[in-house]
Simulated scan of single mutants.
Amino acid sequence: MPIRLDKLVSERFGLSRRAAQDAVRNGRIDLEGERCDEPGREVETDTPIAFFPNRPKARIVAGRLRVLHEDQHVLIVDKPAGVLTLPTPDRERDTLIERAGRYLTIRHGNPKPFVGVVHRLDKDTSGALALARTHEAVRAFQALFKAHDIERQYLAVVEGLPARASGTIDLPLITDRGDLRRGVGRRPGEGRAAITHYRVIEQFGPVASLVACWLETGRTHQIRIHMAEIGHPVVGDAVYRPRNRPRCKAQFQRQALHAQTLGFRHPLTGQDIMVEATVPHDMDALIVDLRNRYGIRGAGG
């Protein structure tokens, strides 16, 4: 029965899955006597493989792109904060789509690889994001997202302490609330359905809380709008935080929002995929600082 190369390397040489992926990507694994740097390649369980832990890296992949999963249909990456998914009319050059194209060119030797967008993250939101590698995959994954057959968990640091340790925000969203910004529909039948589930993980004194959010729908800026609407805007969100709200003691240079996990049944292979993007250094530093300054207690505490 076929198995992913990185899983076989992990089992054969006693490595963690991440260490096995790194070993493959860095050119330290030979498959049937030939160097192979594709962690997601399907191989037989008895395929001859060799591990050379001291072999120098084959190359440094350009584009500063961290890959969480890759197969012939989809590339899931850890998007850094501050990087656009796609260029705007200003034609920015350093975008996630451009980095992914460079990565695929270097890895597979295709001078013009196809990279399709099936969903997006805001420029200043970090975390797991899926990109299609074929036109077929674009259609398949767009259908998957449209059917909401995707498991997505976000982590956010929000202002204040939500009254409930967990809850569901079911408020429709509109594209213009009157100031050219998205917002919540106020009239019956107005807006598109949007549902966010949340759970408080940690509380930092009276100042802020770390919450996990799950999207039942995936509207633009959904978590940011919903959390602000219930009185707990995401720390650092300059767009949806009410302007008349008193200054928060927790300060951050961007919205403290991270797409931590992405899971789904692969629409083209049937494989169950679950990836996790590590909390970036700046957001982790914010959480540690809040713990040190205001203490920490669980949601029930």
Rank of each mutant, 00 (worst) to 15 (best):
V24R: 13
V24C: 14
N26S: 14
N26A: 14
N26F: 10
R28W: 09
R28V: 05
R28Y: 08
I29G: 06
D30A: 09
E32T: 05
E32P: 00
G33K: 12
G33C: 10
G33D: 07
G33Q: 08
R35W: 05
R35I: 12
C36W: 00
C36M: 12
D37N: 11
D37W: 15
D37V: 03
D37M: 07
G40K: 13
G40H: 13
G40V: 11
R41Q: 14
R41P: 00
R41H: 04
E42L: 15
V43W: 07
V43K: 10
E44A: 15
E44Y: 07
E44L: 14
T45A: 13
T45K: 12
T45N: 04
T47C: 12
P48I: 06
A50W: 09
F51A: 01
F52Y: 15
P53H: 05
P53K: 10
N54L: 11
R55I: 00
K57W: 04
K57T: 01
A58H: 10
I60S: 06
V61A: 14
V61R: 01
G63R: 04
G63M: 10
G63W: 05
R64F: 05
R64H: 10
L65Y: 06
L65I: 14
R66A: 13
V67S: 07
V67F: 09
L68W: 04
H69R: 14
E70F: 03
E70A: 04
E70R: 03
Q72E: 15
V74Y: 08
V74S: 11
L75I: 15
L75N: 13
I76W: 08
I76N: 09
I76L: 14
I76A: 09
V77N: 10
D78F: 04
D78P: 06
K79M: 10
P80C: 02
A81Y: 03
A81N: 07
A81T: 02
V83N: 02
V83F: 02
P87H: 10
T88D: 14
P89E: 14
R91S: 13
E92W: 05
E92C: 04
R93T: 13
D94W: 02
D94E: 11
L96N: 12
I97T: 05
I97S: 07
E98W: 12
E98C: 04
E98M: 09
R99A: 12
R99E: 05
A100E: 04
A100F: 02
A100S: 12
A100Q: 05
G101Q: 12
G101C: 06
Y103D: 01
L104V: 11
L104R: 06
L104H: 07
L104A: 06
T105N: 07
I106Y: 00
I106V: 15
R107W: 01
R107F: 00
G109I: 08
N110I: 14
N110P: 00
N110T: 14
P111G: 08
P111R: 13
P111F: 09
K112R: 15
K112P: 00
K112T: 12
K112G: 04
P113I: 07
P113F: 11
P113E: 08
P113S: 07
V115D: 03
V115W: 01
G116R: 05
G116E: 06
V117Y: 02
V117L: 09
V118T: 11
V118E: 04
V118P: 03
L121N: 06
D122S: 13
D122W: 15
D122Y: 14
K123C: 05
K123A: 05
K123T: 13
